[in-house]
């Protein structure tokens, strides 16, 4: 068996007294789109953030392409990695946030070229040429000189995707990338993500877009109350939901959709 892109082993996370993730085990296969679904507060964001070490798991290990992320394990004990070790493993991961998190004092081009210059040490010209290539890819070359405040939500999210891609990650993590968008703007972002999936990028997507999960996802993970209840292909999950909690979740989801139609 080939090595998974991400492997999550016995990961638990507590915030104070509440156990938010309960002994999660998950292998994210390479080159596939894995969707994380579940009710609000079930721990989806927390799990995704653990995969980027933006959140430290309270117990358990996470490996990125076979390399420990954040903690190294030795004789059964976890040791916090140095900043340099963490940065090296993390450089394989690109992250896209619900709130875009573009830096407001830089143009779109500035946002995308920033790390190429300051982290990769490229000259301004080279960095901007590469950044521009990424903006072309998300269809925003004409907006390169715009500041985030001058861009629509959908455009900002596409810039955020370009910014992550510029660093050539092998894995992209998305936390509800379209939830902060007006409904008519979700399509442009989902299209960019679909294109990325077609290129074979390994993606983990927390989403409420069941349609996207069903059509683009290669596998779907269902989280509920911090437990990974279900992990299967979208066909199996959506066609014949067997677990009562999943059924209930999909029901409320469909109910919500139906209510919107009224």
């Amino acid at each position: 068996m080939t090595q998974p892109a991400i492997s999550v082993r016995n990961v638990s996370k507590r915030f104070g007294d509440t156990l938010v993730l309960k002994d999660i085990n998950l292998e994210v296969p390479r080159g596939q789109v894995s969707c994380l679904i579940g009710p609000s507060g079930s721990g989806k964001s927390t799990l995704l953030r653990c995969m980027a070490f933006l959140e430290e798991a309270s117990a358990g290990m996470i490996e990125i392409e076979g390399e420990a992320l954040g903690f190294s394990e030795k004789d059964g004990k976890r040791r916090r990695q140095t900043a340099a070790e963490l940065r090296r493993t993390r450089s394989k991961i690109g992250m896209v946030f619900q709130q875009f998190n573009l830096w407001p004092h830089m143009t779109a081009l500035g946002n995308v070229s920033m790390a190429l210059r300051r982290v990769r040490g490229l000259g301004r010209k080279e960095a901007e040429a590469r950044a521009m290539a990424q903006l072309v890819k998300v269809g925003l070359e004409a907006r390169a000189g715009h500041y985030p405040s001058q861009l629509s939500g959908g455009q900002q999210q596409r810039v955020a995707i370009a910014r992550a891609l510029a660093l050539e990650p092998t894995i992209m993590l998305f936390d509800e990338p379209t939830s902060a968008l007006d409904p008519e703007l979700t399509g442009e972002v989902l299209n960019v993500m679909r294109a990325l999936a077609d290129e074979g990028m390994t993606m983990v997507v927390v989403t409420h877009e069941i349609g996207f999960a069903a059509s683009v996802g290669n596998n779907v993970c269902f989280l509920d109350h911090g437990q990974l209840l279900f992990h299967d292909t979208p066909e199996t999950v959506f066609a014949a939901p067997r677990h009562p909690r999943l059924e209930q979740f999909l029901d409320t989801y469909l109910d919500r959709g139906a209510q919107m139609l009224r």
Binding site: A83, R87, R90, S91, M95, Q99, N101, P104, M114
Partner: peptide, 16 residues
Amino acid sequence: VPRGLIESAEMAGLSP
């Protein structure tokens, strides 16, 4: 400064 902006800097590989 919103925490998310610092996190995106962290994810971009910027040191503190």
